[in-house]
Design a protein around this nucleic acid. Structure first.
Lengths: 146, 146, 146, 146
DNA sequence: TTTT
DNA sequence: TTTT
């Protein structure tokens, strides 16, 4: 029954995050992320192909995105595919998004012009929806690593 | 500019593969794959959430899918997300698919009723769009491992 | 500073799990997993290359491994690389293991000879070290999906 | 038989790449990459845990590493685990490395002091051991995407 | 040491 | 539409 549904992206935000505070007290941030691949076409010319992805982050991750990400930011995202259906103009339509489970910010702090992030975390800070206490890597101690 | 666009799925086919032979000589197989996750809801009841994924396989991979996969087959898929737009009834609509890069068949041969596959490859046979010659794992020899 | 350290395996157990109950109350199961790749060498002969991996599972995952896995079982493992050093005969030696974060069992129930698992979970049951409540896939409700 | 053996890293080089040109004409570059995770220990203190990984890149990838990477560079690596054994002082020892299949450079060009890269590719350029021609994302054309 |  |  169970399976694996995993997406891994490294790309840049095409716009600032859109953040919504929902009635039930949850927060969701939506990112539009471009992943580009370079390749050489059959005529030998270099081409770039870009895909755009809608990524939803919830609560803790949404707060970090709201605070630290902006248009142009580079991020690593791990999540899962979720397709939802909705009615529009009497037609059923589908939208496929990525729900993030982990995010790593990949921009250098020092690359900013000015001081865009007041309380910026260290470059590359990892944020998980479900924070994990990571113990020592020794198998022989009595401490689980997750 | 370049980035990462990766999808990893383990799930079951909801139907037999749909195979099309294109005019240019290419072959494409489309799979409908379900990935299911079990969880306990806030009332303590076990629930299953299923996502459905459209996966396109090309040429070599398509041929293997056509020959060996059927409704119910369990597979591992690695690929990338591709969103295309199309017009329907004068409205632009979007469809997000997965283009497969690698596939591993996860069914045992012996689970079949009868002998569905005349020339079945070993269970779990890996098929790549771009077959790789894998050398010895010794770093010290003069042989690259890919 | 933060980064990504991820391992994904699909392979078979070379032996039954080794389970230890530690003094602090933790349980650890160690799996020896083979991943095999087929390729054609430069002389055109089919070859198989097998890598062996040591995988450690903790507590909840260890219990599931102890109960349901055995020599020959096929599993999907997601985890991270952990290298530890130890002294042996006055020499510092290193061992690189994988610490599992998720496991999916890939064997069919019906492939058993007899009834090896009294209370076997559904085929492909996913077990996580940190169980996740997964909500609906609707973005528009007020329910976070993780 | 076949399986999956995949490693994904995002981390920084602890030293400049070590490059060797082998007798058979192959080139190999070895990277030492740190992946760090932040967590809160049971006393509520923030801790960082760092793992170090040995990554081997061959030929084309090795050339790119040699030319563009240096101590401190941030990279995304995808590859597979390879364990080799060797004799030292009459004892069999094991070493587990990662053989890279893809690399994405994650540093901004503009972060350099001076002009370290004469012919630097765009930031985040992806390099694969086996370059892939990536076609259009339209399923309906006759062009395979890999 | 697995699997086919 | 799958799987258990």
């Amino acid at each position: 029954m169970a399976g694996v549904n995993k997406v891994i992206l490294v790309g840049n935000l095409g716009a600032d995050p859109e953040v919504r505070n929902l009635e039930g007290g949850n927060k969701v941030a939506t990112l539009s992320i471009a992943t580009s691949e370079n390749y050489t076409d059959r005529d030998g010319n270099r081409q770039t192909q870009t895909e755009w992805h809608r990524v939803n982050l919830w609560n803790g991750l949404a707060g970090v995105a709201e605070q630290y990400l902006k248009k142009g930011s580079k991020v690593y995202i791990e999540g899962r595919l979720t397709t939802r259906s909705y009615e529009k103009d009497g037609v059923t339509r589908y939208s496929t998004d990525i729900t993030a489970r982990d995010m790593v910010m990949l921009d250098s702090r020092q690359d900013g012009q000015g001081a865009p992030y007041e309380a910026a975390p260290p470059q590359g800070a990892t944020v998980s929806e479900t924070p994990q206490a990571v113990g020592a890597s020794e198998v022989s101690n009595d401490d689980p690593p997750f």
